[in-house]
Amino acid sequence: MSERGTEIDRERRRLLGAAAGAGVALVAPAVVVRALETTPRDAPVDGRVRWGLAIDTAKCAAGCTACVDACARENGLDLQHPPEGAEPADWATQRAVWVRKVRLRDDQTGRETNLPLMCQHCEHPPCVDVCPTGASFKRADGIVMVDRHTCIGCRYCMMACPYKARSFIHEALSDQLSHVPRGKGCVESCNLCVHRRDFGLPSTACAEACAETGHGAILFGDLADPDSAISRFLASEPTRQIREDLALNTGVRYAGV
């Protein structure tokens, strides 16, 4: 028990380091969510920051869905209901998911690896290349997202994404959260909790939830700042991009794969 407690503390500290590196208030994430001391952005984002995630797969536990659940709560994904008469199997493949747990198994050795897979926030995003309207775009701070005002729902971007990161909303939604407008006919995906970025809040919902379980497998921060915790982690640990052969320079990196 006490060992587990120490583990949590260490992960907390690592996360706090990430927050400090990104130039955000040095407060424990859980406290911030309750108090919501926010600083709304008043200038456009620029390229001095590149947001990203580092995932230590050795710490990602089999069967744990804390990050997936937290993402759903944060972004109102849990407000979706299957259309009337939908087959459960169809619904399972059609409901919007911004992050999924993936299990890799080496058939030779039997070794299993677990990892959360979300939009990889590619520096050269194929989803942006193929979008006919410019709705799929990369923000100056590296976040790849969809401007739903201009999305026509053609789903080209879903076909182009090598990571199956995007979802299409097939049915009318209700009870959306004020900070996450979303609805029928548009494509959506992980936006690195863009509302948190714009209001000066630390971390992402998934990284925060993962730290709270004590696993601490997800590190969020600024890849452009060499002193941020995420940059130091990437500088010291061997990490890889998934499908690095595609040379997309992803903003999400994995250790232990």
Partner: peptide, 22 residues
Amino acid sequence: FDCHAAVPRGPMAGSLAEAARR
């Protein structure tokens, strides 16, 4: 309001409103 919340809803509704008020 097919996409936007038609009532203030969620933990950040207050922050959004406060930013607009300011």
